[in-house]
Amino acid sequence: MTAISLEKVEQAAPALVSLYKSAGASVRRHGLDGRRAAVYLVVDYSGSMRPYYADGTVQALADRVLGLSAHLDDDGRVPVVFFSTDVDAVTEIALDDHHGAIERIVAGLGHMGRTSYHLAMDAVIDHYLDSGSAQPALVVFQTDGGPINKAAAERYLCKAAKLPMFWQFIGFGDRSSTQFDFLRKLDELPVPAKRVVDNAGFFHAGSDPSTMSDAELYDRLLGEFPDWLAAAGELGILAAD
């Protein structure tokens, strides 16, 4: 059974019904029907991201993540962390108030800085631990480049491997850019030499992420999540059902 019914989505966010249906098809394809998880969204607020905010690409990602979250979590809300050099905001988006939410949030933020992953990761970890959730977390982490402190980002990911959190990184931008070499490295960090379980995935959405179909995006978001659930369960990282 889905966390939030189609009828409730039709009432709260009719513009997201198509996304909800597409997400549901992917959830079922990956054997996650009835699975519960907290869904987080982390978005890059560095200066190079300005065009993606201006053309609505970040809002589109937020809407897509809301559509997925409605199948995994029952509160109709997704915690969102905006980051650049520091953490710019820790807030949330909701099904019943999603339209224009990113624009409203960004209007209250300051200067768009550089790119620092680890502080955003720390903010997500703190939020999750403070929530007291017994469910695993799926963290959708979007960025358009590598971090200014690679060592810190790798250290946080490895430490977070002991927590019931899976990090799905998404790259926006030129597929051939070396900016994403670090994310590919994070995706392939050895187990157990560096981390107790493979707790991260990475895929590239291209320079125009809006051209990626909803079905493909959801399949990429969920592609490695079931394997992590199984491995983390075997290691006792997840609470027993």
Score class of each variant (00 low, 15 high):
residue 68 L to T: 01
residue 40 Y to N: 01
residue 58 V to L: 11
residue 52 Y to H: 12
residue 43 V to R: 10
residue 47 G to Q: 13
residue 60 A to D: 13
residue 40 Y to R: 01
residue 68 L to R: 00
residue 44 D to V: 03
residue 39 V to L: 08
residue 46 S to H: 06
residue 51 P to Y: 06
residue 41 L to Y: 10
residue 55 D to L: 05
residue 45 Y to W: 11
residue 45 Y to D: 06
residue 46 S to D: 13
residue 65 V to N: 06
residue 65 V to D: 00
residue 58 V to M: 04
residue 45 Y to N: 08
residue 52 Y to A: 07
residue 49 M to L: 12
residue 60 A to W: 14
residue 39 V to I: 11
residue 64 R to L: 14
residue 43 V to Q: 03
residue 41 L to I: 01
residue 40 Y to T: 00
residue 41 L to N: 00
residue 63 D to W: 04
residue 67 G to D: 06
residue 63 D to T: 10
residue 41 L to P: 02
residue 68 L to N: 01
residue 56 G to P: 04
residue 39 V to F: 05
residue 46 S to I: 07
residue 42 V to C: 02
residue 64 R to N: 10
residue 44 D to A: 04
residue 50 R to P: 11
residue 45 Y to C: 09
residue 56 G to A: 12
residue 65 V to R: 05
residue 45 Y to L: 00
residue 54 A to H: 14
residue 47 G to R: 09
residue 45 Y to I: 01
residue 65 V to Y: 07
residue 66 L to H: 01
residue 65 V to F: 02
residue 43 V to L: 07
residue 60 A to P: 13
residue 58 V to Q: 01
residue 51 P to V: 08
residue 56 G to S: 08
residue 59 Q to S: 09
residue 46 S to W: 10
residue 68 L to Y: 08
residue 56 G to M: 09
residue 43 V to C: 11
residue 47 G to V: 13
residue 48 S to Y: 09
residue 55 D to H: 15
residue 39 V to P: 03
residue 45 Y to R: 03
residue 67 G to F: 01
residue 39 V to E: 03
residue 46 S to K: 11
residue 55 D to Y: 03
residue 60 A to C: 14
residue 47 G to Y: 13
residue 57 T to Y: 13
residue 65 V to I: 06
residue 53 Y to C: 06
residue 56 G to K: 06
residue 58 V to I: 13
residue 57 T to K: 12
residue 57 T to I: 04
residue 53 Y to P: 14
residue 67 G to T: 06
residue 42 V to Y: 03
residue 52 Y to I: 07
residue 47 G to C: 10
residue 49 M to S: 14
residue 62 A to R: 07
residue 52 Y to M: 15
residue 54 A to P: 00
residue 51 P to G: 02
residue 44 D to F: 13
residue 39 V to H: 02
residue 63 D to P: 07
residue 42 V to F: 08
residue 43 V to P: 05
residue 53 Y to T: 12
residue 46 S to L: 05
residue 64 R to S: 03
residue 42 V to I: 09
residue 41 L to E: 03
residue 45 Y to M: 12
residue 52 Y to T: 08
residue 43 V to T: 14
residue 69 S to M: 10
residue 66 L to R: 02
residue 70 A to Y: 08
residue 45 Y to G: 01
residue 61 L to R: 09
residue 64 R to P: 05
residue 52 Y to K: 15
residue 68 L to I: 13
residue 40 Y to F: 07
residue 67 G to L: 08
residue 48 S to R: 05
residue 63 D to M: 12
residue 56 G to V: 11
residue 48 S to M: 10
residue 41 L to R: 04
residue 59 Q to G: 11
residue 62 A to M: 10
residue 42 V to E: 00
residue 57 T to G: 05
residue 46 S to V: 10
residue 56 G to F: 02
residue 51 P to E: 07
residue 48 S to N: 12
residue 62 A to P: 08
residue 51 P to N: 12
residue 58 V to R: 03
residue 51 P to D: 04
residue 52 Y to Q: 14
residue 51 P to K: 03
residue 56 G to D: 05
residue 54 A to F: 05
residue 48 S to A: 12
residue 43 V to W: 06
residue 41 L to K: 01
residue 59 Q to Y: 10
residue 66 L to N: 00
residue 61 L to G: 12
residue 46 S to P: 08
residue 63 D to A: 08
residue 61 L to T: 15
residue 67 G to P: 04
residue 62 A to K: 11
residue 42 V to R: 00
